[in-house]
């Protein structure tokens, strides 16, 4: 297969914490344009894999390739600049700033004035139109001047997605985008992810299997730090080993 087909590849990725392998020999391939879900019971190593991919953890062994380029040793800020943007499991916004400012911070890097301490921040209002367009895309226009910390949980997650989109990611990495949400919020976020995944690749860690079955074309099941199965949802969800791995934790 041509390597251009895959946006993200890992080879033998492992992470050891003092003798315990949280992730062992994971070789993952994320195809361009897919919504790829990483699932597994609690403690399967999903979040560790995610943090390895986003460079918030350093792998003990293995390689990570982004568009065929090795990024195993690249820093977390630098992979974001290459177009690989992540979200966080606990909603990560800038709580004391307004929604507009939150999105503008995500946009302002490209102005090249982020070190200019002598310049007025009025110069950032050039970004307002684009920031508003992003807020509109996630349905938050009316809250633009609210303080981000005051938003209800589901809307914070939506804001976070707007901020990630502001970086114009080729590859969007979502860490449990529906964790802790009410049913209506889940519907809204699922819909949103579906919309924003056009023209981009999404890799997400997700617990909620109905979200996964609605959104993703490929899923990878992790168990005890290793890949248990990989393939389209319909196939994987029927595999006996996957069912037994999930039954043990009460998920279904």
């Amino acid at each position: 297969m041509a390597s251009g087909e895959f946006v993200l590849e890992t080879e033998g990725l492992s992470k050891e914490f003092k003798g315990f392998f949280a992730v062992r020999d994971v070789s993952l391939r994320v195809r361009k344009g897919d919504i790829h879900a990483l699932i597994g019971p609690n403690g399967a190593g999903k979040t560790t894999v995610f943090n390895l991919l986003t460079k918030f953890l350093t792998p003990t062994a293995g390689r990570i390739l982004y568009k065929g380029e090795e990024i195993t040793k690249t820093g977390p800020a630098d992979i974001a600049r290459k177009g690989m943007v992540r979200s966080f499991q606990i909603s990560a916004v800038f709580p004391h700033l307004s929604l507009l400012e939150n999105v503008r911070i995500a946009l302002q890097r490209e102005l090249g004035t982020s070190f200019h301490f002598w310049k007025s921040d009025d110069s950032l209002s050039a970004l307002n139109d684009r920031a508003m367009a992003l807020l509109e895309a996630v349905g938050l226009t009316e809250f633009r001047n609210h303080t981000a910390g005051d938003l209800p949980y589901g809307r914070k997650r939506a804001l976070e997605i707007a901020m990630a989109l502001a970086c114009e990611p080729r590859l969007l990495l979502l860490d449990e985008p529906t964790a802790g949400m009410t049913h209506e919020d889940i519907v809204r976020i699922t819909d949103l992810i579906g919309r924003v995944s056009e023209n981009r690749t999404v890799l997400m860690v997700e617990h909620n299997l109905s979200v996964v079955s609605n959104l993703s074309n490929v899923i990878t099941v992790l168990q005890r730090g290793e890949i248990l199965a990989e393939g389209p949802y319909e196939e994987v969800s029927k595999m006996p080993e996957v069912i037994s791995a999930y039954l043990g934790t009460g998920h279904g």
């Binding site: 979200s87 400012e101 982020s114 002598w118 310049k119 921040d121 110069s123």
Partner: peptide, 23 residues
């Protein structure tokens, strides 16, 4: 300033600022 805006972002949530591409 634009710089101050990034500083506030770092104060509020440094990992998030990093993930937006700020060193």
């Amino acid at each position: 300033s634009p710089f101050g805006q990034v500083l506030k972002a770092i104060r509020e949530n440094e990992p998030r600022a990093i993930s937006l591409g700020y060193r």
